[in-house]
Design a protein around this nucleic acid. Structure first.
Lengths: 161, 161
DNA sequence: AAATTAATGTTATAATGTATCAAATTTTAC
DNA sequence: GTAAAATTTGATACATTATAACATTAATTT
């Protein structure tokens, strides 16, 4: 297997302003298509999540919301997150109790995460080989899959040097 | 791919008394080999975890410890869990904030979990096809793996009927 | 415009996990 | 065999993550 980079790795240089803008743009489209409302709070939470490619805790988001003049309580953030999760616009990183913006445009999808322990970046990938191997093994056990939590922790390419 | 059962599925009938006994036996061997102490508290926590194949929360364990006459505080349980995790005798199920006894004898190993949303059972599997697919994809991104969190939620065979 | 539904505000609390320091126990070294 | 060192446990307090419940406001429907 030759080494190749199929998507830009977020810890390397990339135009994050554009990256974020695209994400918000897509969010509007998805919500329009799904006939749900991307309210100011929801959009703001999504924007905060997209400030980086590092998963954010709910209370990190809460803190950012509060320092911006407004006052917010936990349910405000969790409700916005629940909405964004339901629309597939963010994902939960169970191993970190944190949330990350979805960087894949295909909806819905089954994805996996590479989590760098050094820089904290989460790289979302969609690897059919992984999905297929899981489906096949589940089938061997007669297990029917609802949802996958695939979180791979280690060191990203940038942080190995 | 033909359907086969490579290990007994814990939600089906199996001799759990023996299952548990074996686990505790192995734990003693592992600790002896690793030159660490399986103290009464640690063994008791492991035994409680092995009361079933359903992941237990730390506070579930704490409750069970306390009702048995003794009085215990959270650190007691978390310390025992940390120890058992370090020895590879239990695993953490991140998507449930819970802990399950390790049912594989090969140490150390990379395993995956099938989690039934109905009966709650966790089936630990060791699927090279999954591990390999993950390793290969990680390599494509120049990512070096420390640890995997592979949790597959759905319905086990028994609960589909 | 009134009624209905959806979204947000607010307070309180539940659930999960850790820091810290003291006491007891076990192991090591002499 | 005993003192010193290291490990384990006890105990209190607190930090972090998440939800329940109900009131209020805003948006949508009729």
């Amino acid at each position: 297997m030759t080494k190749k980079t199929t998507t830009p790795i977020p810890c390397s240089q990339h135009d994050h302003k554009k990256c974020k803008k695209n994400a918000l743009q897509r969010a509007r489209q998805v919500c329009q298509k799904n006939k749900v409302r991307l309210t100011p709070i929801r959009e703001k939470v999504l924007e905060l999540i997209w400030q980086s490619h590092k998963p954010l805790g709910a209370y990190d988001i809460l803190g950012m919301l509060s320092t911006e003049g407004q006052t917010a309580a936990p349910p405000t953030v969790y409700r916005a997150l629940d909405f964004l999760l339901a629309q597939g616009l963010v994902h939960r990183i169970a191993s970190q109790n944190a949330f990350i913006g979805c960087s894949l445009s295909s909806h819905p999808h089954v994805s996996q995460f590479l989590l760098c322990r050094d820089c904290g970046v989460a790289i979302e990938i969609e690897a059919p080989a992984i999905t297929d191997a899981i489906a096949e093994n589940a089938h061997q056990y007669g297990f029917s899959i609802d949802q996958n939590t695939i979180e791979i922790s280690g060191l990203c390419q940038c942080c190995q040097q």
